[in-house]
Computed example of a mutant assay.
Amino acid sequence: KARMFKNGGHPLVFEGAIKRTENVQVGEAVDVLDGAGELIGWGVWNPHSLYRVRMLVPAIERDQLEHRSISEIVRRRLQAAASRRAACCLPSESTTAYRLVNSEGDRLSGLTVDVFGSTAVAISSALWLELRREAVEVALLELAGIETVVWRRSDGRLRTDGWNPPEASGTAEGEADGRPAPAPPVTVLENGLKYLVAPVLGQKSGFYCDQRDNRAMLAELCAGRRLLDLYCYSGGFSLAAAAAGATSTHGVDSSAAAIGLAQSNAALNGFGSVCEFSQSDVPAFLKREGVAESFDVVVCDPPKLAPSVKDLRRAGRKYRQINSLAMSAVRPGGLLLSCTCSAAMTQSGGFLPMLHEAATAAGRSLTVLRTSGPACDHTLHPCCPESNYLTAVLVQV
């Protein structure tokens, strides 16, 4: 088992890899040794979690091994993450919304941080972070450009990590923890377009930075064409297409709040006459008269349908149904960008076969033009491919 974790290997140590423990306390720094007693690295211990140790420093990083200070390694990891984004030209004059920390990808397992202008939204999904919340917030505020930190909790994941919410918390998945709300929604830039972001009340962190590159890619194909943006949330694909010269865009989402946000974003950029939005159940909208073969380009980006591997069969049926309907809305020879944000689906290798089955059900055929993932600020640990979650497939229908 030790081979998995040596030389900066896998960042998560499961129960089955542990032979014995000595003098360990929940949330504290622990050394991880191999069978010969040699140091593999150190991390944080949690006997309640599926991940018994979240590795913070492997032995190969000799310069970081001397002090077992979790607060200090958090500070260093955050500085390294900021340097990584700077290498990707983030932030920039045209983009002020980006992911600063991507959990295992930035060697801070359980922590996700998105930055919107001068506001950092930290999403905690691990007990060790709840125990050191203040240290994380202080370290974030030390970074250039960050003036405010909003702390949000992924309650479902935290509960599986042994966290018991405070009685008065009243938080739901990904919601703020009840502290006084910071300033009203902030305005950010993505590739020169303006977006309103609600760090406290929006879905997840308030904005989906992961689709930035895919939005830019698809926009280039939309000049003079009609776009249908399914599960549009704040209208990212619609606005990018409108800016690139789409003749019209139509966004659909079941959330009234999302539609209101998308409409505000369209108005903010002067696209009110180009971008239309409808609050509707997506399958119901696609079954309406006049929708079939009406659009040159269709985006299908549903929420996570397969939270885990055990959900794949059920989710597969939903993906097939939605994509089959979406393909029917594409004019012959048009384009479909179909996405999944379910890690289980991405890692199963079943997304492309599902698209083929959906095309067969719709009486259409597909040609794959491109397969992509999230933007480069959504970093990936090379020994933890299971944290890869987003797949976006561009096909001609």
Results as ranks from 00 to 15, higher is better:
residue 75 R to S: 15
residue 76 R to D: 14
residue 76 R to H: 12
residue 77 R to D: 14
residue 77 R to P: 10
residue 77 R to S: 11
residue 77 R to V: 10
residue 80 A to Y: 14
residue 80 A to L: 14
residue 81 A to C: 14
residue 82 A to C: 09
residue 82 A to L: 14
residue 82 A to W: 06
residue 82 A to H: 03
residue 83 S to I: 09
residue 83 S to E: 14
residue 84 R to I: 01
residue 84 R to Q: 11
residue 84 R to A: 10
residue 84 R to S: 06
residue 85 R to K: 12
residue 85 R to S: 10
residue 85 R to W: 10
residue 85 R to L: 11
residue 86 A to L: 15
residue 86 A to H: 14
residue 87 A to Y: 12
residue 87 A to L: 13
residue 88 C to E: 13
residue 88 C to Y: 05
residue 89 C to N: 13
residue 90 L to W: 03
residue 90 L to C: 11
residue 91 P to C: 10
residue 94 S to N: 03
residue 94 S to V: 11
residue 95 T to K: 07
residue 95 T to M: 03
residue 96 T to Q: 04
residue 97 A to D: 03
residue 97 A to W: 01
residue 98 Y to R: 00
residue 98 Y to G: 01
residue 98 Y to E: 02
residue 100 L to Q: 00
residue 100 L to R: 02
residue 100 L to A: 03
residue 101 V to R: 11
residue 101 V to H: 12
residue 102 N to I: 05
residue 102 N to E: 07
residue 102 N to Q: 15
residue 103 S to K: 01
residue 106 D to W: 05
residue 106 D to I: 05
residue 107 R to E: 08
residue 107 R to G: 00
residue 108 L to Y: 03
residue 108 L to W: 03
residue 108 L to R: 00
residue 108 L to K: 01
residue 109 S to E: 05
residue 114 D to M: 01
residue 114 D to L: 01
residue 115 V to R: 09
residue 115 V to A: 02
residue 116 F to L: 04
residue 116 F to N: 00
residue 117 G to P: 09
residue 117 G to A: 11
residue 117 G to V: 00
residue 118 S to Y: 06
residue 118 S to L: 06
residue 119 T to A: 02
residue 120 A to P: 02
residue 121 V to L: 00
residue 122 A to F: 00
residue 123 I to C: 02
residue 124 S to A: 13
residue 124 S to F: 06
residue 124 S to P: 04
residue 125 S to K: 01
residue 126 A to M: 00
residue 126 A to G: 01
residue 126 A to Q: 03
residue 127 L to V: 08
residue 127 L to R: 07
residue 128 W to F: 08
residue 129 L to E: 04
residue 130 E to H: 13
residue 131 L to A: 10
residue 132 R to F: 09
residue 133 R to Y: 13
residue 134 E to W: 03
residue 134 E to G: 08
residue 135 A to E: 10
residue 137 E to H: 05
residue 137 E to S: 10
residue 138 V to I: 13
residue 139 A to L: 03
residue 141 L to C: 08
residue 142 E to I: 03
residue 142 E to T: 08
residue 142 E to N: 10
residue 143 L to Q: 08
residue 143 L to E: 07
residue 143 L to R: 00
residue 144 A to F: 13
residue 145 G to W: 06
residue 146 I to Y: 03
residue 147 E to K: 15
residue 148 T to W: 04
residue 150 V to L: 00
residue 151 W to M: 05
residue 151 W to Q: 00
residue 154 S to E: 10
residue 156 G to V: 13
residue 156 G to N: 12
residue 156 G to Y: 09
residue 157 R to Q: 06
residue 159 R to Y: 03
residue 159 R to V: 15
residue 161 D to W: 00
residue 161 D to M: 05
residue 162 G to Y: 09
residue 162 G to A: 12
residue 162 G to C: 11
residue 164 N to A: 07
residue 166 P to C: 04
residue 168 A to P: 02
residue 170 G to H: 06
residue 170 G to V: 09
residue 171 T to G: 08
residue 172 A to Q: 14
residue 173 E to Q: 15
residue 174 G to Q: 08
residue 176 A to P: 10
residue 176 A to I: 07
residue 176 A to C: 12
residue 177 D to V: 07
residue 178 G to D: 11
residue 178 G to C: 11
residue 179 R to E: 13
residue 180 P to N: 07
residue 182 P to R: 06
